[in-house]
Amino acid sequence: MNIFRLAGDMTHLASVLVLLLKIHTIKSCAGVSLRTQELYAIVFATRYLDIFTSFVSVYNTFMKLVFLGSSFSIVWYMRYHKAVHRTYDREQDTFRHWFLVLPCLVLALLIHEKFTFLEVLWTFSLYLEAVAILPQLVLLQRTRNIDNLTGQYIFLLGGYRGLYILNWIYRYFTEPHFVHWITWIAGLVQTLLYADFFYYYFLRFIGGRGVE
């Protein structure tokens, strides 16, 4: 564990807590894409299948349970909780996110580190996570203005993988044989997809306006 990875995990944890806070306290998911949340639930479900077979540390298992629990409960809230579901912008959240799943699965079957069931699904989860934010970014374009909590959620979600990139650079220079091109390229693509959002998000800080 290094400071970059810990900062990355904490940023990721903060992003799900901000979203849960917004949904649970003000019972609103305005501006939040259910489709991105569904993709993230699939990402965690396919990435943490090894939670029962390979124990890394208490921290690792605990965080996996937190991410699994939060992503599925957010989907449940947005789909089935009356008050929250009413604030869901179904008409605008129309990105065909299922079209992302199959290509990621095919790619994982073609490009992976080991051809085993767990490893292919793990690789699939990396590719899917790289593009999971797309429905949310499209929804963002359509809803123009978003509230601060949603803006912070997206900022933290984008920032965590950026911190992971620093972690991979650190581990590359400090650990022999630490080379994971698939993870690195997927993580880079994921972070680059936020570039546009980061630009407007920082403009907001400079201009002191809402995120447009």
């Binding site: 990875r5 995990d9 990721h12 390979s54 793990w122 972690n167 650990e175 630490f178």
Partner: peptide
């Protein structure tokens, strides 16, 4: 060994 056998990152 741990790294090889599985993934130690989230």
């Amino acid at each position: 060994a741990k790294e090889e056998e599985g993934h130690d990152e989230l």
